[in-house]
Structures are given as structure tokens and as C-alpha cells.
Nucleic acid binder design. Structure first.
Length: 261
DNA sequence: TTTACTGTTAGGAC
DNA sequence: TGTCCTAACAGTAA
């Protein structure tokens, strides 16, 4: 369920298992919806190696030695696996990169929202997309600038990849839950202090999830992630969890300790 | 059988 | 021009 931490876990998996191995071949699954590197671009990659990875927000980049980068976006349901030769392939593998020796890097994407494409330069790509600063690397002032002056709902601001890259629905809710802010609050109505706290919460949460390799069961029980259900008792206070739609997305929040500005 | 869902983006309203 | 909102994309699971 890919937001920044899931993308980072996938990047690590690639960095640990798929670098510095000679690319032998590509296998394509059902990819009619995808904008994959062309046949000739793939041919150019055969015989080379991936040597570096990069991540910005939810976007993963894998760089080949001398040539272009591959950009990977996991979409709503994508995942990355590194498997040895002969291992059973999961369903919905769209693209496999096969390395000398038999190991394979497999991109799985049941719902077809994921994307892979050839990119000349990672930073140029980020600029062209208009992505905001990466949520783990953004500083206090830049965060206040990007989020604090938005007139719409603070939750929508957090989700805007043009303002801040990497936060998705789940961790936006988690950060607002932790800082006691109602998701519908106009971001520009929040005090500088609360914006600062929100910045800290976003980064603490993302870091903690990254440390578990996005394994939710390892996260503390009093996090909202384990309590996303209307009518539940709030794990932080005596309140009740409720569900509402904010900016078109499902939001869970505590009726008692999350307030408007 | 119906409904909801983690993300992105085109198109339209204001 | 900018900002915000909605719908649509596909497949699965509850």
C-alpha cells in the first residue's frame, strides 16, 4: 500500500538485491496500459548493470551504469520482489528484469495504477512533474511555506504531491491524529506552532514506518493505522474514531482530541 | 451483489 | 493564473 515508506522499502529491496548484476533480459507481462521503455531502449540496457537507486516522494529511480534511469511508481497496489531463478512468480507481474545467474527483479501491479518508464535524469523528472520537496527531507521553513499558507483543508495540502512529495492518505491521517488537528481545518488557519508540530509528526511517522520496512504490524498499537474503523475507541483518549470524506478521500479521525484551529 | 480502497490526473468550477 | 474538487482508472476483498 504504497506511500513514501513503502516506496523506500522497495528501493532498499532493489538496492540490496538488484545492483551490480548484469542485465540479461526483460520479460513483459500484461502491460498494455503502461508506458514502458521501448524494445530498443531495453536492448540498450541489456548487458549493463543497475548501479544506483534514488527516491523522491513515492517515486523510485534505478540507474544504470552509463545510460538512463528507470522510474518506478507503485501506484495503488504495486510492489517489487527480488527472486532467485525457479522461484514461483506471483500473479500480476508486469515487468521482470532478469540478471545473469538467474536472479530476477519483478514488478507486480494488480490494479494497473503503477508506472515504469525510462527517464533521462531523476532530478529533471522530479522538476518536470512539479513535485514538492521529499517529505523526509523538507525543512521546517519550507514545510510551513508549502503547507501553512494553503487555504483548503490541511489534509488535502498534505496529500498534494506538488507541495510535499510522499505523504498519502494513511500517513496524512496518522500525522493529524498525532497532532490533534481536524483534517478539515484550513491549513492557513493553523498557528505556526501547530504547523511546526505537524511537520515533526509527519517526519517522525514516516521515519518510524521506514524503519519497519513498512510492516504495519510492527507499529505501536496506539497508532491510528490499527484503528481505522468508525466507532472504535480512540487509542489515545476517551473519544471515538469517526470516518468522513475530506478532499474526496476517506479520513479517520478522533471526535474528541482532533480539533479545528 | 454491492461497496470501498492505499494514488494520480484530466477537466471543470470558481 | 491559481486553487480546489470530482470522477475515472482496475481488481480485490469484505
Amino acid at each position: 500500500m504504497p506511500e513514501l515508506p513503502e516506496a523506500e522499502a522497495a528501493r532498499k529491496r532493489i538496492a540490496d538485491g538488484a545492483l551490480n548484476r548484469t542485465i540479461e533480459d526483460f520479460r513483459l507481462g500484461e502491460v498494455s496500459h503502461m508506458d514502458l521503455p521501448s524494445e530498443s531502449e531495453r536492448q540498450r540496457l541489456i548487458g549493463t548493470q543497475f548501479t544506483r537507486t534514488h527516491r523522491h516522494g513515492k517515486y523510485i529511480f534505478v540507474g544504470s551504469k552509463s545510460g538512463p534511469w528507470l522510474h518506478i511508481h507503485l501506484g495503488m497496489s504495486g510492489s517489487v520482489r527480488v527472486l532467485e531463478e525457479g522461484a514461483d512468480l506471483p500473479d500480476y507481474v508486469r515487468l521482470s528484469v532478469l540478471f545473469e545467474g538467474g536472479r530476477g527483479l519483478h514488478f507486480r501491479d494488480p490494479r494497473k495504477f503503477g508506472r515504469i518508464a525510462r527517464v533521462e535524469d531523476a532530478e529533471d523528472f522530479v522538476a518536470e512533474k512539479g513535485l514538492g520537496p521529499d517529505a523526509l527531507r523538507i525543512g521546517d521553513n519550507a514545510f510551513a511555506e508549502a503547507i501553512g499558507r494553503t487555504k483548503g483543508a490541511v489534509k488535502s495540502a498534505l496529500l498534494s504531491q506538488k507541495k510535499l512529495a510522499g505523504v498519502g492518505n494513511l500517513w496524512a491521517d496518522e500525522a493529524l491524529f498525532r497532532t490533534g488537528i481536524d483534517p478539515e481545518t484550513r491549513a492557513c488557519d493553523l498557528s505556526a506552532e501547530r504547523i511546526g508540530k505537524l511537520h515533526g509528526a509527519v517526519q517522525d511517522i514516516l521515519k518510524a514506518v521506514v524503519e519497519t520496512d513498512a510492516t504495519y504490524s510492527k507499529l505501536p498499537g496506539d497508532w491510528l493505522i490499527h484503528n481505522r474503523e468508525a466507532g472504535r475507541d480512540c487509542p489515545r483518549c476517551s473519544g471515538t474514531i469517526a470516518k468522513k470524506t475530506v478532499g474526496g478521500r476517506t479520513s479517520y479521525h478522533c471526535l474528541t482530541h482532533q480539533e479545528a484551529a
